[in-house]
Design a protein around this nucleic acid. Sequence first.
RNA 1: GCGGGUGUAGCUCAGUGGUAGAGCGUCACGUUGCCAACGUGAAUGUCGGGCGUUCAAAUCGCCUCACCCGCUCCA
Length: 534
Amino acid sequence: MTQPTSDATAAPKSMDDIVALCRRRGFVFQSSEIYGGINGFWDYGPLGTELKRNLKNAWWTDMVHRELMGPFGAPVDIVGVDSTIIMNPKVWEASGHVSGFNDPMVDCRETKARYRADHLFVQRFELDGTTAGFATVGAGVDEARKAIDADRARRKVPHGYGGLANAIAKVRFGVTEAALDDLVPFDTLDATARAAVLAPEAKEVGTLTEPRMFNLMFETFVGALRSDDAKAYLRPETAQGIFANFENVVNSTRVRVPFGIAQIGKAFRNEVTPRNFTFRSREFEQMEIEFFVHPSQAPEWYAFWRDTRFAWWQSLGLAGGNLQLREHDADELAHYAKEGAGTSDIEYRFPFTAPGFGELEGVAHRSDYDLRQHAEHSGKRDKMKYFDQERNERYFPHVIEPSGGADRGTLALLCEAYTPDESRASKVYMAFHPRLAPVKAGVFPLVNKDGMPEIGERLYRQLRKRFVCEYDPKQSIGKRYARMDEAGTPYCFTIDGQSVEDQSVTVRHRDTQAQERIGVDHVERFLTERIGGA
RNA sequence: GCGGGUGUAGCUCAGUGGUAGAGCGUCACGUUGCCAACGUGAAUGUCGGGCGUUCAAAUCGCCUCACCCGCUCCA
């Protein structure tokens, strides 16, 4: 009655199924679940914690500890810092986050659209003795003006407007003339004035809410007194902890430009809409390098980091068509990267973004924006410049920033590993790269008697000195293999009757379910060859 | 914040006013001896929460909480 499934990869990956497995096997739980959860916050269970830790360790090992050859033939030099989540609030004024992350927003009750208040301009005019107007979207006055001129050139009112809205629309679409005032930003209007405004696309008047602040930075208070002076922020990125320590690192170590400072740590953003499992969380972990270079070398270093970081994600198993490198268009560059060598995203095709992609890591040329800002705001000015002995030159180094998301990376690993397979008992297995697998090996006595558990326990004790392993003597062997498949354990070693005779065990391979027989003395070497020290 | 939806065992769900249920999973014992096997048994519920209607509420009403989906954004 069931169709034989020949191609396991043919089954589509369902995000709901992945989330269910994550909960069932203890990869990811909702934070505070016993109280119904809290939107945008996630916990890692035992397996997820190991997985994420393996990812972060791989990053730190490969970026900071191991030798990496740079674009100019010399090894890359990177040191680490671990800065605090709460910093002096001036840091965030200098970085631009206080202004950039505090945009008042306006909602339209009718169309359900949401606008940035500073991108909403109102054209006002006299209408039957009162002041009315209509709102237009634009990044600035000029852009809004253009949009209005385009509308007025249509000389025709679309259907659906009635009463006052129709009278306003007649002016908007150039059917009736009126004495037009200058454009005013929406957020300068009071409640009465707002009530006489026709929103974009809306057919009724006065549907726009008052501008409301959406604070993307979490606020807190330092000290027991809740005064405005005590206000502080939970960092929205780890990068500023690096920039603020730039001088300290230069003065306390022997690093010389070009060099990098790496940091892994939590960051917080009060996202308006956390969505898609852990993808957009309000509390998340970043893996960031700020790499400081002479301005003239920025293009080479930018290309180097973009390619190095892309290759790194590929090396962890995110190969194939699900990973892509995408250069940003000029209009989507961040405030700190307007000029420079560019910005690119390393993107993964998540089940919830497919056929599109979601960002895993951004590699940006931040120019000398941040160091200059801090030099300015801290009052250190030119004293913060770096003195380059070789060049005999004082300058603000330019920064290439590879900034990856540890939680997004973990999520991508989970999605990539998730492999439906109707042919096996678990119907699914997690094909993690052995280096990242939360559990490296399972050790099972086929039956919990007749000398098998003794051999198994001895092997388990030996292996766990170097590898994360599980020993499980209970239940049918099929159940134990099935559980290991869902945990993504690459190898299982089973002790059977023959083991008692000749000290050999079977190795069961996760991806193929194939078995082979090796001597129990060779198991440790077997794992070392396939997993290494990681 | 606005609109829509959901909430019963670890999971999937049944239960529309009258004793809180099933399958799967979990655990124990036995059997089995290489892929969630079989037998026997066991544990597990503030029916999201509160108030109300009623002799009686998982079920009807009101309120509330949390989550999910859409709108703004991004590591």
